[in-house]
Design a protein around this nucleic acid. Sequence first.
DNA 1: GAGGTGACTGCGA
DNA 2: CTCGCAGCCACCT
Length: 112
Amino acid sequence: MKSTSESFYQKVYAIVQLIPRGRVSTYGAIGNYLSARSAARMVGYAMNQAHSAQNFIPAHRVVNRNGFLTGKHHFGSPDLMQQLLENEGIEVQNDKIVDFKKKFWDPALEIV
DNA sequence: GAGGTGACTGCGA
DNA sequence: CTCGCAGCCACCT
């Protein structure tokens, strides 16, 4: 039923929820894993509905390619995203993830 | 039915 | 090195 891609979001949600604590991913990495080279916008768009999703989506673990908290404003509170990241042991300074490259989590590499 | 937007990315000048 | 533009796909009005 509703096999017509229940929602591109469902896929994104699944990936985001798979992100281990203390790690972060990017829109491009997720989009790339979904067969979309640069569908990063769709991933970000999915996050837009994340707060509407029935399940909790750790969208704070998803940032842009530069490691900046671009979507922090969509959490209801601009500081909420940073607080969540710091709560997981991720250092955030100037709205940017510290050592983002080290904490970067690629689904295509982790999910086999 | 058509147009516009968007939490992005990569490449060119 | 820095700045700008075009591409991408799905959802919303």
